[in-house]
Every structure is written in C-alpha cells, then in structure tokens.
Amino acid sequence: MSTKLELPIQEFTTPYPVTAREDSSIEELLDLIKNLKVRHIPIMSDGKVTGIVSERDLKIISALSTREKFLVRAADLMTPDPIIFRGSTSIEDVILKMSEKKIGSVLVSDEQGNLQGIFTVTDALDILVEILRGKK
C-alpha cells in the first residue's frame, strides 16, 4: 500500500534563486552559472518570471560565433512560461509533474505569485536519500 507524500515543496526549495533579466547577455548568464554554480536561471521582467534558461541551453548556444553570441539575449534563449508551483504543493505532485514533463527544475512561488525559490532534480534526489534512510 502506498502513501502520498504530503510534505510541502517549500520545505525542500532552494530559496531566493539567482535570476537574470530578459536583456541579459549570454556572457552574463554564463558568468552566473559558472561563478554561482547553478544550472537554472529564472528570467524576470517587471518583477515577474517570464522564462528560464538552463545550463544545457547555454551549452547549445556555445556553438555560435562570438559575434552571434553578442546578439543573443536571455529572452531569445529562455524557455517561456516555466512551470511554477505554490510552496504549499505536495512534494509528490511536483516530482510527478517534473517526471511527466521530463524537466530538471520548477519554480516555487508564495501565495501571491512572487518567486520564492527553485526546486531541481537534485533536490528530489536529496529527498529520496532521506526517505531511503528513514528520515522522512
């Protein structure tokens, strides 16, 4: 018999994720990923999330010439309308959606829709380890 994990996603979310603007350059995004050791960057405009750029997106763009890279901005590269969950959503619902959509991260907001954090596959694996060790 299985039981649903009713733990809220906010308990496992990396708070205050690094963000960038839609007009951020490829170099700015690469610097954030390299220096802050993140793999996903929410893209913001007027205080709202408009997209997300992953490390994989930036690797794909690396094949462009220096001149071409100079012309590309975050808005050109981002995946628009990323999946956002309220912090109260159950961990199971979030992980199932990530698996179904084959995505590496989702964003987490408060009840007013303000960005609170990011939840990644790595966070999901950390939860699995805790469950296997009997800590959750």
Rank of each mutant, 00 (worst) to 15 (best):
R39P: 03
R39L: 05
H40C: 00
H40M: 02
I41P: 07
I41G: 07
P42I: 05
P42W: 10
I43M: 02
I43H: 08
M44K: 10
M44F: 09
M44S: 09
S45D: 15
G47L: 07
G47R: 09
G47Q: 07
G47T: 12
G47A: 01
K48W: 13
K48V: 01
V49C: 09
G51I: 02
G51M: 10
I52N: 02
S54Q: 08
S54H: 14
R56E: 13
D57F: 11
L58E: 03
L58F: 09
K59M: 14
K59P: 06
I60A: 13
I61A: 05
I61D: 01
I61H: 10
A63T: 15
A63Q: 14
L64N: 08
T66H: 15
T66I: 12
T66D: 07
R67H: 13
E68C: 00
E68L: 05
K69L: 05
L71G: 00
L71S: 06
L71I: 06
L71Q: 14
V72H: 03
V72P: 00
P82A: 01
I83W: 13
I83P: 03
I84G: 01
R86G: 02
R86I: 07
R86F: 13
G87M: 07
S88N: 13
T89R: 05
T89Y: 03
S90E: 06
I91W: 10
E92M: 04
D93Q: 10
V94T: 00
V94P: 00
I95H: 00
I95N: 02
L96A: 06
K97R: 10
M98P: 01
M98Q: 03
S99D: 12
